[in-house]
Design a protein around this nucleic acid. Structure first.
Length: 496
DNA sequence: CGTATTTGACCCGCGC
DNA sequence: GCGCGGGTCAAATACG
């Protein structure tokens, strides 16, 4: 926030440099150049247009060789410099105060849910030889997941100064920020792994609030939020729905209360990608395939996957941007009538309340997109409907600084998942797209979300280009869900 | 032979 | 403390 103000302050100077009529709305007190000449009243004889200034000695015309004038200007210059210093110190203090207040607010907000969260490391509980937060052993977080999400979302403010870094996209930075914020409450995984590859370095349990952040100390600081997930329910006869990514199955378990086994997959599109997904058929209706994503991709995604990521991310955004009502089973349905938490980021939507649900009954918040109530017409889209491929800032796929390379839209048709099936490909993307297509509210909301994000980012990028300073995106509030809700408890697709 | 899948063992958190 | 269940590992196996 503070930094963006500084960026704005630069813009008038840039305009000034364009040799247009001098209109000074704000003054850049922190510019490397001392723009003291701008303080000279426009109507005074000392005022010269920028072009004149370049052609002649600063602020003095050859007709006024007076040493007195020169000394006066030097005095003025000194005064301005002093003022500049004072303002700079004021800004520093304001920034510090803001940061302190923000931290305090966050800690206060979280206290009811996690008393231990802000404790110093040595005050945390020692459980089984590892440091664990109190709530990890007591409260699985059922009542705190929403708060965690909001906290993570708000923690964005603290990360904004770093967001502009080209090697970070917003999601990644936010995930890191959140993970850092969680560092104090998370114990380290003990026991050694025989495997040294990246996958194993990033491997950790999904257990309730038991994120292993051993990655924190990894050289690349590749840390991921494991808090939230995005679950997609869709009707499908295929054993697996293609979502544009490559997955490797690493386990299968029989889950209690469900005759159908649960399969565990991890993303293999890039080494070390921490994204996992679970695939299981619904116990009540085996025709429904439940795919749950978790983690952030650390690589670029093909369009098919990015569309999915965008969709789930938007759903997460919408859920989180509006208040939710808690039902008896712990699920939260989106309430479009209440103001958004981030009104500047997302408008108030009218999302179908039956389509997306935020559940906190499980140890981690799970955004569920129920696509089973929509008619499945693969590839059917409204005439004007098209999801833009997310630009590199888009929170869901993490690129680790690698520019996202758009691939051919047809690429996923060569995906092994397609080739392995004789049936017409049933893709998650198709399903989601069809669902969107048949739900105008969702379509409208999603497009608004995407447009909002893109517009916001474009504006900021423009401002950044003008000011030459780092800017950050305010819209970054996607829960890292599996697929990035944002670290914040983020899904990658949420945190897809 | 390299890669993907299967599957039993293991780890860990949680509830009783 | 113990058992249960979820999640992951890794050796064995299958496949192209």
């Amino acid at each position: 926030m503070i930094s963006s103000r500084a960026g704005e302050a630069n813009e008038p100077v840039e305009n000034f440099m364009d040799a247009k009529p001098v209109v000074i709305k704000e003054f850049d007190f922190f510019s490397a150049n001392d723009n003291c000449e701008l303080l000279i009243p426009k109507g005074s004889p000392e005022f010269r247009h920028q072009d004149d200034k370049v052609a002649s000695p600063p602020l003095l015309t050859p007709k006024e060789p007076s040493n007195i004038n020169l000394s006066m200007l030097r005095v003025k210059l000194e005064q301005v410099r002093d003022e500049n210093r004072n303002l700079r110190s004021l800004l520093d203090r304001a920034t510090k105060n803001y940061t302190a207040l923000h931290d305090h607010l966050l800690s206060v907000m979280q206290k009811p849910a996690d008393v231990n969260h802000s404790l110093p490391k040595d005050e945390r509980q020692e459980v089984g030889g590892s440091t664990l937060p109190a709530r990890q052993s007591k409260d699985p977080g059922t009542s705190t997941s929403i708060l965690d999400i909001n906290e993570a979302l708000h923690s964005e403010d603290k990360t904004q100064e770093r967001l502009a870094s080209p090697e970070n996209n917003n999601m990644e930075v936010m995930s890191k920020e959140m993970d850092h914020s969680m560092t104090d409450q998370i114990g380290r995984k003990h026991g050694s792994s025989n495997n040294d590859d990246d996958v194993d370095h990033t491997t950790h349990r999904w257990g309730a609030l038991g994120q292993n952040l051993e990655e924190e100390n990894r050289p690349d600081q590749q840390v991921f939020c494991k808090k939230a997930r995005v679950s997609i329910r869709a009707r499908s006869d295929a054993p697996l729905m293609s979502d544009g990514c490559q997955w490797r199955k690493y386990g299968q378990k029989m889950a209690k209360g469900n005759p159908c086994p649960r399969a565990y997959y991890r993303c293999t599109m890039a080494t070390g990608c921490p994204v996992r997904k679970q695939v299981q058929r619904c116990a009540e209706d085996v025709s429904i395939l439940i795919t749950t994503y978790e983690g952030n991709h650390n690589h670029s995604l093909p369009p098919a996957a990015t569309v999915m990521a965008s969709t789930t991310s938007a759903a997460v955004n919408m859920l989180l941007s509006g208040s939710t009502t808690t039902s008896s089973n712990g699920s939260h349905k989106y309430n479009p009538s209440n103001p958004s938490l981030f009104p500047s980021m997302l408008p108030n939507y009218a999302i179908s309340p039956t389509m997306a649900t935020l559940s906190t009954s499980s140890p981690y918040p799970t955004i569920t997109l129920d696509l089973t109530h929509t008619t499945h017409h693969p590839m059917q889209r409204p005439p004007n409907f098209s999801l833009p491929s997310p630009p590199t800032f888009f929170p869901l796929p993490l690129h680790n600084g690698v520019p996202q390379q758009q691939q051919q839209l047809t690429e996923h048709h060569h995906h092994p998942l397609y080739m392995s099936s004789n049936k017409p490909p049933t893709t998650l993307v198709d399903t989601v797209t069809a669902a969107i297509a048949t739900d105008r509210n969702f379509t409208t909301a999603l497009m608004a979300a995407v447009s909002s994000i893109m517009d916001s980012t474009q504006n900021k990028n423009n401002a950044s280009n003008i000011s030459g300073q780092d800017t950050c995106s305010d819209e970054m509030a996607v829960v890292p869900v599996a697929p990035q809700l944002p670290d914040q408890s983020c899904t990658t697709f949420a945190t897809n």
